[in-house]
Amino acid sequence: MTTFWFIVIAFLWTGYFVLEGFDFGVGALLPLLSRSEADRKQVLGTIGPVWDGNEVWLITAIGAMFAAFPAWYSGLLSGFYLAVFLVITGLIVRGVGLEWRGKVHSRREVALCDAGIVTGSVLPAFLWGAIFGNLLFGTALATVLGGALSLSVAVLHGAVFVALKTTGAVRARARRAALLAAVGAVPVAIGTLPSVPGKGPMWTLGTALLAASALAAGVTLVWGRREGWAFTATATSIAATTATVFGVLWSAPLPGLTLAEAASAPYTLTVLTWIGLIALPGVIAYQAWTYWVFRKRLTAQVS
């Protein structure tokens, strides 16, 4: 049961990184992909209806950790106090930026919202990688490299998403941005990912390799303008990276803490399992429906 809940939490984090990964990338690339206000609306329109739902994956992952592994939850958040604080601050300014952007009037206020969106996308995208890099290796180098990996992959993932969801000049720029981001992301991924499995189980070596090769495949596919498949590849890469990280954390989710020590009692885990098994497929179904409703590519707004 403990193992099962560890997998559930890894799954929630995976969903979070895959989904909000492209939200972060889109936010970070906002100024680079746009020449005009119409462009900016087009870029942000790709994530407009979905980003808030994507963020709930994080809230659910954190809530599930609280319920299933209280000591892991509290140890992680109090241990990475200032980093987590900066993540939250980023999410706050990004959230109000996205929500208020269409409701402010002057250019200056729109620019402020955009600043919030960019800062609030770059900061958490870097910090999550930094936090998990530090958690795995505990060194400053791992922290920086982890952050560089998560930020660069998020930017690549977001660029591919924009290329997939738009037409016209923005789509062309997004493709170029994806290729440029790949110049950063691929070397960092190849340099860091193979070292992650180190003390983890054997299969993490496989997922680490999958992560690196999916990333490379994604870049090739963007080059060939196969954006749908490219997005599938970058999403796979992020999922495989997350699986690798959690595979290694399995034996020790925090230094000096085992999963069994951190876990809640069997009763709680059992009850939550039943509710989760009923609810989670529903959540996935209606979120998938959202993507179906907004499946069309966005063109620049006429008016």
Binding site: D52, E55, V56, T60, F66, A67, P70
Partner: peptide, 27 residues
Amino acid sequence: TFVGDVFGAPLALEALLAFFLESTFLG
């Protein structure tokens, strides 16, 4: 750490059953 076993459950349920519903359908 003291209360997570009990107190965490409604929080997890809140995110799973309520927040997803709220944010997805509001979008």
